[in-house]
Design a protein around this nucleic acid. Structure first.
Lengths: 123, 123
DNA sequence: CCATGTCCTGGCCACCCGGCCAGTTTCGCG
DNA sequence: CGCGAAACTGGCCGGGTGGCCAGGACATGG
């Protein structure tokens, strides 16, 4: 494969909105140095709709809550989290409770899902 | 706000690789009808590296397991899943057990996280 | 100095979860 | 026609989870 610096950049277009997709395709089709990927072709980059990571405002979580949240996302139990952070299980429960509250979740699984959706944590 | 059909499409560029990012920025900067988003600006679409959705191999999950998994990601309890799918809690547990096994997870939270990471489900 | 917020800990308890055992039905494939 | 895979159901039980009560320590800042 030629690693030519001037090689075309292959872009994959994954936009649900047909209008936006067509306009982008038309626009990008005329750009020298760019090429839209053929179906199934491996692209260097992908154009997706919006970006879920761009959050208008992130939730106000304390450092400790972020610690607990990160370990929760790893599937750690309260006991494991307690050991990891060097605190008691009760304290972990306390932080988990705050998390459920702030993230508007019904359980730890829901909390991790919400946090991931809002970009608070990176899965 | 002018909802002109010919308005510029604002693109956000989120590429870690500096080389690729610079080349794309240079290329796209000259395209009429396109504009790169200012920091913090809401973009119509985002350019990301590669595509996380392109998975070398997806896990072999049965339809029912996918049903259960989807509801798990919504934070639903076994009881809620059972009601939703019209099956017994025991059966839900059965499917959850298979899920934990196939996804190599230690609990339902871990299972959802793994599934999301591998693109099996969309958070 | 006292209020506020964060972090930490304990006990108690109903409920949920996951793993174990067991079984049935239905379906497609060889 | 058997045989396995998938789906479904049951009981049992130890341990995990989440909600409630209570309290204390420590730093920031009004």
């Amino acid at each position: 494969m030629s690693e030519d610096k001037t090689a075309e950049i292959v872009l994959s277009l994954e936009i649900d909105d047909p209008t936006l997709a067509n306009r982008l395709a038309a626009l990008l089709g005329n750009v020298a140095g760019l090429r839209l990927a053929a179906p199934g072709e491996t692209a260097a980059a992908t154009i997706v709709a919006r970006d879920p990571r761009i959050m208008p405002e992130d939730i106000a979580l304390t450092q400790r809550e972020l610690d607990v949240l990160a370990l929760m996302a790893e599937g750690a139990s309260n006991k494991m989290i307690a050991r990891q952070l060097g605190i008691s299980v009760h304290t972990v429960k306390f932080h988990v409770g705050s998390l459920l509250d702030k993230l508007d979740a019904t359980g730890r699984t829901d909390a991790v899902a919400h946090a991931a959706r809002r970009g608070v944590i990176e899965l």
